[in-house]
Design a binder for these strands. Sequence first.
DNA 1: AATGAATGAGGTTTCATTCAT
DNA 2: TATGAATGAAACCTCATTCAT
Lengths: 195, 195, 195, 195
Amino acid sequence: MRAAPRRRLDPEVRRQEIIDAAERLLKRHGPNVRVEDVVREAAAAKGTFYLYFPTWDDLLEEIRGRLIKTFDDAHPVQLAAASAPDWPRVLDELAVAFVDTVVAIGGLHSVLFHTDFARRRPIPQHDNPPSRFTAIVRAGQAAGAFADIDADSIGRLLFAVIHETADAVATGEDREGILAAMRWTMRRMLEPEVR
Amino acid sequence: MRAAPRRRLDPEVRRQEIIDAAERLLKRHGPNVRVEDVVREAAAAKGTFYLYFPTWDDLLEEIRGRLIKTFDDAHPVQLAAASAPDWPRVLDELAVAFVDTVVAIGGLHSVLFHTDFARRRPIPQHDNPPSRFTAIVRAGQAAGAFADIDADSIGRLLFAVIHETADAVATGEDREGILAAMRWTMRRMLEPEVR
Amino acid sequence: MRAAPRRRLDPEVRRQEIIDAAERLLKRHGPNVRVEDVVREAAAAKGTFYLYFPTWDDLLEEIRGRLIKTFDDAHPVQLAAASAPDWPRVLDELAVAFVDTVVAIGGLHSVLFHTDFARRRPIPQHDNPPSRFTAIVRAGQAAGAFADIDADSIGRLLFAVIHETADAVATGEDREGILAAMRWTMRRMLEPEVR
Amino acid sequence: MRAAPRRRLDPEVRRQEIIDAAERLLKRHGPNVRVEDVVREAAAAKGTFYLYFPTWDDLLEEIRGRLIKTFDDAHPVQLAAASAPDWPRVLDELAVAFVDTVVAIGGLHSVLFHTDFARRRPIPQHDNPPSRFTAIVRAGQAAGAFADIDADSIGRLLFAVIHETADAVATGEDREGILAAMRWTMRRMLEPEVR
DNA sequence: AATGAATGAGGTTTCATTCAT
DNA sequence: TATGAATGAAACCTCATTCAT
C-alpha cells in the first residue's frame, strides 16, 4: 500500500511553489511560521522541503535575495544616465519605494531583518540594500549634488533612517508625519555646504 | 559527579549573581544562551533561577532595565539647567556615550534589541532610549538651538542613526569614520534654518 | 547506547501500539506511569507520542473511550427488544460484566476513575457508564418491572453500588460475598411496590 | 544579620495552626493546594511544616483522622442504648449528617477521597467511615430491624450509596431529589423480609 | 524550634531535521 | 523526485523536600 509520489513537478516549479507558499505565510504571520506550515501551504511533504533547501535559513536567504532583486528590477537606479539626473529626487523616490515595499511585505520584514536570521546570515555586500543608496550618494556627490562626506558611512546611516521610517510606517505610525521627517533628514544630511 | 554544597545567600546577592552570570554569558555569546547555561555559570540549580525569575524573558527585561538605568545615571540629562546648555554638545556627548555602551555590552545588545524578545517585551515608553534623545531635541528646540520639526519623528530617526552607528562600531567598523558621519548627520538634521 | 533503527509504521498501527503499550503499563502499575514509560514500552521516541496525542490526558481519554466502546459492544443493551426482556436479569448481567471488566483492567481503573484525570476530563454524558444503567432502569420502569422512582437519581446510586462492588472485587475482597450483596441491593432498590 | 526565629509557639499550638490553615485552604481550593500555600496561610516557614509532618500525605492523614473524629463526636452512635432505638431512623440521621459534612468540607472531600492520596494511604479499618454504618447495620440486624444479609458487604454498599449522594449534593445536584433516592435505597436494601 | 533559600528530579511540549519507504 | 512518520535534543517550568543558618 505504498503512497505514490503525489505530484511530480518540474523541480523549478516545485521550488517556486514552496517559496511562494513561504512568502505568503511569512507576510501574514511573520516569525512563528514553521517548516510544517510552509509545506502544508505548498501541498508538499516535509521531506520535499529539504530536497530543495538544506535548511530553513537557506529558504529565507533565497526569499531575501529574490525580494531584493525584485525591488531592484522595479526601481532601477540609472547611475550612468545620459542626462544629468535630479539626484535628490532619485534618492527620494527610491526611499519611498523602499518604505512601501517594507509595508507591503508585512511580517516577512521582521523575519528577514529583526530576528536571529539576520545575524546568522548577513546580506552579501553586493546586493545589500544600503549599497544601493550608497551608490546614489556617490553618484550625486560626483555630480556635485550632495555634500562630500564618506559615502559608505553616510550611506549606511541614510539607510538606517529609511529603514526606521519603514518600520514606523509598518507599525502604523502616521505615514505622512514620519515620511516628512525622513525627507527632511535625507535632504539635510546630504545637501552640499553651499548656502 | 559530586553535588556541590548548598550555598545559602541573601536573596539580593543570589539574584545579583544570577543577573551577573547572565550578563557575562550574554555579552560573550549573545543569543543561544539558555537558563541551563546561566545557572551553571552562577553555580546555582535550575529551580533557583525560577525562584527569582518567572520566565527567561523576565530576566532579560530586568537586565535591560538595569542597563538603561545605569546608562541614565551615568549620563544624566539636565533638561532644566540653570545656565543655558550647549544643546548640540549635550546631544553629541549622549550619543557617543550610547555608542560606547552598546560596544561595551557586546552580544547582549543583539539579544536585547535584535531578537524576538524585543518584540515580545517592548520597552515601556518612559525609559525608552529614544525618548531620552527626543527630550533633548525638544529642549533644544525650545531654546532655539534646533530646527523646528516634529520632535517625535525626528527623535526616532535620530535614535536610529545613533543606534546604527553603534551597531557599526560594535561590528568592527572604523569607529572614527562612522562617528564622524553620525555627528555630521545629527548636526545637519537638527540645525535651525537660519544660516 | 545504540539508537534503535527507525520503525516506520502505518499511523493507525503506531497509534495502536502506543495505546496498547500504555494500557499494558497502566494495568500493571496504575498511576505513576508517564509518557516516558509508555514510549519506552512502545519502542518509540518521545516526540512520536506527541505526534499522536497532544497531551497525556488525551491518551487517557482515548483509552477510556475505547474501553467503554469495547464494553458496550460486548454487552449491547437491547432496549427495544421484540420480546419483553427480563429486566432484572438484564441488569444483573450487565452489572456483573461491569465488575469483571473493572477487575480485568487492573490499575487502569483507578487511573481513569480515581485520579485527577477524572475531574479534569469528565466523561461526556452520552457514553457515561451510569447512563447505560439508567437507561435500563427507565426501560424496566416502563415495562412495570421496576419501581417508579426518579430514574436519574436511582440510576446514579445503582451505578455507585456496582462500582463499589467492582472496587471491592478488584482489591481482593471475597467476590461471591460482595456480589451477593450487590444483587440483593439491586433487586431491593428496584423491585416494584407490589408484593 | 540573622533572622531570629519568628514566632516561637507551643508545638501543639503551631501544629494546630498548620492543620487549620491547610483545612481552610483545602476546603476552598481542593487539590492544587501546595505546601507553599499552607505555610503562607499559617504564617510559618516551609521548614517548619516538615518539623511537624514528615510528608504532605501525613498532614492529609491527620486531617482525615480529625475529621472522622469530629464527625463521630458530633454524631455518636449509641449501639448499646438502654431503650431500643429506631434503627432505620438512626441510620437515616447519620447518613444525612454525613452528606451535610461532605458538603461542608468542600474541596477537602475530593482531596481526601478522590485523589491518589486515598490509595496511597487507605483508611485504617477502625475509624473507617463505612465501619460506622456497618456497626449500625449489625445492631439493627440484632434487633431484628434490618434484613439479615452479610453486614460487611451490605455496609460497604450502603456507604457507597451515601457517599455518592454526598458527591451529588456537593456538585450541585438537586438535594431533595437525590436524598429521596438515597433514603429509598437505604430503606429497601435493609428492610427485613417480612411481607 | 524555626527559617526560607536551595535543590533537582520529574514532567510536558516543540520543531528542525532525518530517513525508511 | 517524493513522502511523511519518526526522531530526540532542548526548552520551559513545578514543587515536595532538604539543609545551612
